[in-house]
Design a protein around this nucleic acid. Structure first.
Lengths: 250, 250
DNA sequence: ACGCATTTGTTCGTATGTATT
DNA sequence: TAATACATACGAACAAATGCG
């Protein structure tokens, strides 16, 4: 990226992109490169404007979009901060399970397993790995009021999560995605979920304390980091007798 | 307009609203009053700016928010239009069921029932009606490739949907929400869904062609019109063996 | 306790670019 | 081509929130 010059950028570009989008791309690349860590403030609008030699309003529009994309968080009077899963306000950003009685009690978790293995074909496909690549598999239970309600199976690319062990998981306080962020430098930006109703098989039924063949919500999630690179595959089985998956359409 | 004072909000009571938000509220009220119908263009930014005696930029910011709220749709060079459920591009805005094979084939529907009755307690609560108020109950099946996949039970406030009959439903081509818009003046703006896994009971199993006690996705939706007034309660049962509910988290 | 500097938020104005008819 | 509408970009000024001295 040379000087944006003026608006007369002399076309010929593959596809026209307005100045503020070019700035947005530059900022995104800095985020991706780890120039500013999750939870930290990025430079002020004026400073970025000077750095990129554009007006403050143009930087502003770039940041606006990054904020609506949930990559940044603006706070008046304080600055603009890199989004994080570690803060209390936005904890469990991606968790949509709500108890019927509306209580805000938090869930507790128990890790059942954590091991490295060669990725099964299905995982290879979802995470865009090469066949034979290593992955970390984590299995955990989430409890609400001492009752198990979620059984999660999680697969992570082995190359990105070296040193992820059962001990590290047990020690960590806070959301899993906060651990990934601060210890492995992997930020979860967005995710896609496929939701179905399935019948509990024998082992899952035992773990969740439901009858065999009881209906469970199956939530298959692929989570993405910068550049839309898939970095997590997760299959959750939810007992939805006393809680539900909440969604908002608009 | 010197005192917006729109409290009735928990926690922080702003008691101050920036100009563009006041303009946004004015435009919203015009939409609510039906000044411009779904699919129609609203006046241009400059005209609105003159009408409200503010700068074009202020109107622009108000419209920006209304566009991200999906109340308006901007089209460069053409104008800004009132959002609608009737257009091909955005048809079935609220339908999240996707076939496994990714085909874009549309579903066909069959209406099983349409009658007026006194609202059951549960419906009264969800639609904020008075006990004894009339509602319209619609039951329908959605088929995909000749196979039934969705059983919907729909309840609508009787006062708003006078003249809704089985014949009207059968005649109508296009999304149900398009009918509500153009024939009854009720625009669906947003919706909340509670999703669970349930076991098929005898009658539902028969209608959907699944085994009794088979797992089904239960989708309970409350849809809102302007001013966050609930105007539809809908309970869908989805057979998710060959399709899934798609959701995006960010 | 007060004021000041910093940072984002709001508002105005102007000019120009791009898309549509 | 011309007219219209939204989109981009710049600049300037002030307001509101925050934190520090």
């Amino acid at each position: 990226m040379s000087t944006p010059a003026t608006s007369a950028d002399a076309g010929a570009a593959p596809s026209f992109s307005p100045l503020y989008r070019q700035i947005k791309a530059l900022i995104t690349r800095s985020l991706e490169a780890g120039a500013w860590k999750p939870g930290e403030a990025i430079p002020s609008e004026v400073e970025l404007a000077q750095r990129f030699k554009v007006s403050q309003g143009t930087v502003r529009k770039a940041i606006d979009e990054l904020a609506t994309d949930n990559l940044l968080v603006r706070r008046q009077g304080k600055g603009t901060f890199v989004a994080t899963h570690a803060e209390a306000r936005v904890q469990y950003r991606f968790l949509r399970l709500v108890p019927d009685d509306g209580s805000a009690e938090r869930m507790t978790r128990r890790f059942l397993d954590c091991r490295r293995l060669r990725a099964p074909a299905e995982v290879t496909r979802a995470l865009e790995l090469k066949s034979g690549d290593a992955v970390v598999h984590v299995r955990r239970l989430l409890h609400f009021r001492e009752r198990p309600v979620v059984l999660d199976d999680i697969w992570l690319p082995g190359a990105l999560f070296r040193g992820l062990t059962a001990e590290r998981l047990d020690e960590w306080r806070g959301p899993l995605y906060g651990l990934f962020e601060s210890e492995f430098g992997v930020s979860m930006i967005r995710a896609e979920e496929k939701i179905r109703a399935v019948a509990a098989d024998e082992p899952c039924a035992a773990l969740l304390g439901v009858a065999v063949a009881a209906p469970l919500l199956s939530v298959e999630r692929v989570a993405f980091t910068y550049g839309d690179r898939p970095v997590e595959l997760r299959r959750g089985l939810y007992d939805t007798r006393d809680q539900y998956y909440r969604n908002e359409l608009s």
